[in-house]
């Protein structure tokens, strides 16, 4: 599917996105030259451990980074608009209108001082010249769409009167108010109860498919990725170490880190009964100061001297990975080539 789409101009195109944070002890290279494309209606899942730069990447696209973070990129294009060069005004016009965002913490991401209705209406009226009445109608329509009953009466409620699951539904409705083309969801279910997580996630996926919205879903839950992703990006220590169509990445993981991750979760048909699940020993290295070579080398079982040097890009588009081993050391692990 993605092969066909590759010939079409991508909706979001990122090349060499780099984020540096100056600290007292040196520069923290939080995100180091990542590339990815996202087409209309596609779902890209970015997976990785906490601190790998997933959230920062999403904020960088939104232009919502803290002021002290330096952002640079060869290309950061949204539907032909250069987001790096865009003015504050232009960015403001895009945010909430064509690109919407859903944050991790539904408990705190709604303003406690205003009603749900006020906040939904504001989301629309910031970008569209519509009356309050029309905006309220739209709000009710979307609240019903995200599965909230008695939507009209909910409008006058305050966030603290709703449960976490309901609030996240409101946040999703708010993101959809202007019919965006891209939604960035940063671990939208992490803070919720496990039973609610699945509901919210299916709702999100269902709605994005139905409304043909592209989505970047940031998560560390590989089970989720397997179910919803068209494309997967595996992030480690500020780099996308492996990208590709979900079926390829899950079917034939190339990077040793990706394989390590996949060994950590049980896979039907692959993981044998009674077999121990894998772990990746060690911790994510510090990214302060000059970072040379492969950042995974301190934890990689296949480390060689060359891992300290420049790491070549391997594989064929759309499935690519970064490793000194041409086969990502698949052979060394006894995996089929």
């Amino acid at each position: 599917m993605s092969h066909i789409q590759d010939t079409v101009k991508p909706l979001l195109s990122v090349r060499g996105l780099t984020l540096d944070i100056p600290l007292a002890s040196g520069t923290l290279h939080a995100v180091r030259g990542i590339d990815f494309d996202l087409h209309k209606g596609e779902t890209l899942c970015i997976v990785g451990e906490s601190g790998s730069g997933k959230s920062l990447t999403s904020l960088a696209v939104m232009g919502l980074l803290e002021k002290n973070i330096r952002r640079s990129a060869e290309q950061l294009n949204f539907d032909g608009i250069d987001l790096i060069g865009a003015s504050k005004r232009q960015m403001r016009g895009l945010r909430g209108d064509r690109i919407a965002m859903i944050f991790q913490e539904p408990m705190t991401s709604l303003n406690p001082a205003y009603t749900i209705g006020d906040q939904l209406v504001e989301a629309l009226r910031l970008h569209r010249k519509v009356s309050r009445e029309k905006a309220r109608e739209r709000a009710i329509e979307l609240l019903e769409k995200v599965g909230i009953t008695a939507a009209a009466s909910r409008l006058s409620q305050y966030p603290h009167q709703l449960s976490g699951g309901l609030r996240q539904r409101v946040v999703i409705a708010m993101a959809l108010m202007c019919e965006p083309e891209l939604i960035i969801a940063d671990e939208p279910t992490t803070a919720l109860d496990v039973t609610i997580q699945a509901q919210i996630l299916s709702l999100l996926v269902e709605l994005t498919k139905e409304m043909d919205v592209a989505m970047i879903l940031i998560t560390h839950d590989l089970g989720v990725v397997a179910r919803v992703a068209d494309k997967v990006g595996v992030m480690y220590a500020g780099e996308l170490v492996e990208t590709g169509p979900a079926t390829d990445v899950f079917g034939k993981p190339m990077h040793p880190y990706t394989r390590g991750l996949l060994h950590c979760i049980p896979q039907p048909g692959k993981t044998k009964r009674g077999e121990k699940l894998g772990t990746i020993p060690g911790i994510v290295p510090s990214l302060i100061g000059d970072v040379q070579g492969c950042a995974f080398r301190t934890r990689c079982p296949h480390v060689v001297e060359a891992c300290r040097g420049d790491i070549p890009e391997r594989g064929q588009p759309p499935h690519e990975f970064l490793c000194v081993h041409a086969d990502g050391a698949r052979a060394a692990e006894g995996e089929p080539a």
């Binding site: 911790i283 290295p285 510090s286 100061g289 000059d290 970072v291 040379q292 950042a295 080398r297 301190t298 480390v303 060689v304 001297e305 891992c307 300290r308």
Partner: peptide, 15 residues
């Protein structure tokens, strides 16, 4: 394994 010596800048002292 010989590579995982403390000289590697990525393995800097954490404490």
């Amino acid at each position: 394994m010989a590579l995982q010596e403390p000289i590697d800048p990525l393995l800097e002292e954490i404490s």
